[in-house]
C-alpha cells in the first residue's frame, strides 16, 4: 500500500491535490494520504506532560473541516484513506521520524502555490522536504484559476483540470 504525505497550511487550496488524486486514482489500488500540519512543540512543562487544556492549536476554518470530511468520504469509495495529523516539532528530523514511523514514501507538493503559515503555533515545514531523501513530487497548481471567494468550490472541477497533464501523469504513476 502506497502512502503519500500532503502538507497543508489548513486552507482548502492545499487540499486540492488530494482531490485530484482521489478523482483520478480510481481503481488503482490501496492508497493512504496523510494530510500533515506541523506545529510547535509545547514549551511549558504542563503541556509536555499532559497536553493541557491551554494548549493552543491552530484554528481550522469550517470550510477546511468540511473539505477534509468531503474528501475523506469520497476517498473511501476508491479505497483511499485520508488521515489528518499534527506533527509536533520545528525541525526536519522530527518530520523525517514521523514519515519513517508511518512508512511514508512520497511527498506531494503544489507547484506554484505559496503555503502560508500565518498562525502562531504553525511551523513552515515546506523547506524541510528539500533536505530529505524521500521522493518529492510536484504537481502544478495555478492559483490564478481560482477566485478569492472560493472555499469548498475549489474542490470542484473548475474547468482546468482536464488540461493538466502533469496531474494525470502523476496520478497514473500511483498505480500499483
Amino acid at each position: 500500500m502506497k502512502k503519500i504525505l500532503l502538507p497543508t497550511d489548513l486552507t482548502v487550496q492545499s487540499l486540492w491535490a488530494a482531490k485530484q488524486i482521489i478523482q483520478q486514482a480510481r481503481y488503482q489500488g490501496a492508497l493512504t494520504i496523510y494530510v500533515v500540519h506541523m506545529i510547535e512543540m509545547p514549551s511549558s512543562i504542563n503541556d509536555l506532560l499532559s497536553l493541557g487544556r491551554n494548549r493552543k492549536y491552530p484554528t481550522m476554518s469550517p470550510a477546511f473541516i468540511d473539505a477534509l470530511q468531503i474528501l475523506r468520504s469520497k476517498a473511501a469509495e476508491s479505497n483511499i484513506a485520508v488521515h489528518f495529523e499534527y506533527v509536533y516539532g520545528n525541525n526536519s528530523r522530527v518530520l523525517k521520524n514521523f514519515m519513517q514511523g508511518q512508512g511514508i514514501a512520497e511527498v506531494l507538493l503544489l507547484n506554484g502555490y505559496e503555503y502560508s503559515f500565518s498562525q502562531n503555533v504553525s511551523v513552515d515545514f515546506i523547506p524541510f522536504f528539500k533536505r530529505m531523501k524521500t521522493a518529492v513530487n510536484h504537481i502544478p497548481f495555478n492559483i490564478g484559476n481560482f477566485s478569492e471567494f472560493q472555499l469548498l468550490s475549489i474542490l470542484l472541477n473548475n474547468g482546468t483540470e482536464e488540461k493538466n497533464e502533469e496531474v494525470a501523469l502523476y496520478t497514473s504513476s500511483l498505480a500499483v
Binding site: Q69, I70, K74, S153, G159
Partner: peptide
C-alpha cells in the same frame, strides 16, 4: 456565465455547493 451545482457528503451532512461567477 457558468453556474455550478455540486453535491457531496461531509460526515453526517449532505453538502450542496452552488458556485457562480456573477457580480458577487
Amino acid at each position: 456565465k457558468h453556474v455550478v451545482i455540486a453535491l457531496a457528503v461531509a460526515g453526517n451532512d449532505t453538502v450542496i455547493i452552488v458556485k457562480d461567477n456573477g457580480i458577487g
